[in-house]
Write a protein that binds this DNA or RNA. Sequence first.
RNA 1: GGUCCCAUCGUCUAGUGGCCUAGGACGCUGGCCUCUCACGCCGGUAACACGGGUUCGACCCCCGUUGGGACCGCCA
Length: 506
Amino acid sequence: MTIRVRIAPSPTGSPHVGTAYMGLFNLAFARHHNGLFVLRVEDTDQGRSRPEYESGIFRALQWMGIQWDEGPDIGGPFGPYRQSERTVIYREHIRILIDKGKAYRCFCTADRLAEMRKLQHQNKLPEGYDGRCRNLSEAEIENHLQNNDPFVIRLRVPDEGTCVINDRLRSEIRYEYNQIDDQILMKSDGYPTYHLANVIDDHLMRITHVIRGEEWVPSTPKHVLLYQSFGWEIPEFIHLPLLLNPDGSKLSKRKNPTSIDYYRDAGFLPEALLNYLGLMSYSRPDQEEKFTLDDFVSDFDIDRVSLGGSIFDLKKLRWLNARYLRENYTPDQLWLKFTGWRINPEFLSRMIPMMQNRLHTLGDFIPACSFLLATDVSYDTALLTGHDKDPGEIAEMLQTVIFQLETLTDWIPGNLQTALELVAAFWELPIRDVTSVLFVAISGMTVAPPLYESMALLGRDMTRRRIMDSIDRLGSVGRKKMKKLEERWDMWNSVRHQTNGEGNQP
RNA sequence: GGUCCCAUCGUCUAGUGGCCUAGGACGCUGGCCUCUCACGCCGGUAACACGGGUUCGACCCCCGUUGGGACCGCCA
């Protein structure tokens, strides 16, 4: 039987290094065993999925040299490979589950569920669905259906018994069914949840090995139950350890740059990044630390992965990248790398209009806008606060800039301006007080080319990183303060939306 | 809080009962090379979380403790 593996990214944001990490290990496993590697897009979250995120993920993975054998863009024998195009399949299958009594309709409202959770939390009871709609009579169901009451479909998890998961790297993992929630399989919008779609697709796409992050272990019993309910063969599960922040928590963009685009824009080479990922929780038999994808594949052995999570260490990545830079390229070849990056007519010509009026000589150009071509920017932290401002307050202000920037779909100067105006309004400050800080955070200088254009050109992930860096310089925003700030921010925004009506988002 | 996973230098890791007075790499650091810097070379720093077993013998096996993490959404 051909080995078939897959990665299943969700197009809800910037391309994540974790996706590339899983991609690398899946790809290596497939290639090493002469198998096939599938890319499937899990876009069942109608609210958050966007086509531009999907193409961004494709581009980023390809940039890194992670190439799939079947996927939405190239097709394959088991398509479509985009879950939003498979809704009919899910509906057919959920029907089977309901007929078998393995799943049931639940008419509980989101409000009731929230209330229920709150109570459970207060009374320190285990949280989970209380099963109110588990045993509705035919008549009751009929009645709800007649009324067009919205409903979801839940998995009927047995009241007793043990689920044994065979994980290749961890031997047997056991879960008692009585502590597993009746998972929602189909949302009220008719779309499947991850759990349902994932199991159906993995089966239909003939996936033999599910290689995914450790974060999925707790939901695996639900998946096992689904396979059993359908009467399907269960694939082999291989849960890989997670990529971690320096503090040991799961890698997150709040604490570390996680976007592949950041690493590209910061000037890392794709092969170095890929190589570095291959060092995470893994070591080659010969202990060699620098290797090509082909090397990696040729002696790849999934049983060599170690189980502790790995902290993503920028310092070591930089060292590896430096080795590639000096060992793998002649000066001429390196020049090609520069032009493929940002030192090319296309990028530079976009810098010229914003500089023209500010030049006394041609030689003023590069020094004035070198921050657009720099990995990092260095400056005196005091420039962020001026003479009299409180570092904590400035940090919070910058944090709200990040909140607002997050909501932008199009990274263009006009939207950036609106975003900063909004932040200024929130703090009841003149826009100037916001932009003056941003100038420093972004360029490292108090005198710089136009801010919005600069941010647009720098790019979303580089901009984010620079702002995060400036917050860190100011001493960061503590957990409690962060939570409070978020609440205040959300509150202010919801009020704003009520007064302005919907659709005024920049 | 409940369930589950994990545990070797600050970080990435080697190690599958004797080869370990624990090896390599990043970082940090002393020196050499040198017009500066970088590269390169030589050296240093620093770890088996703890307590019980099992065994002639435990970093390696078992149990417990501690610590860390993940998950507990009509997100994936």
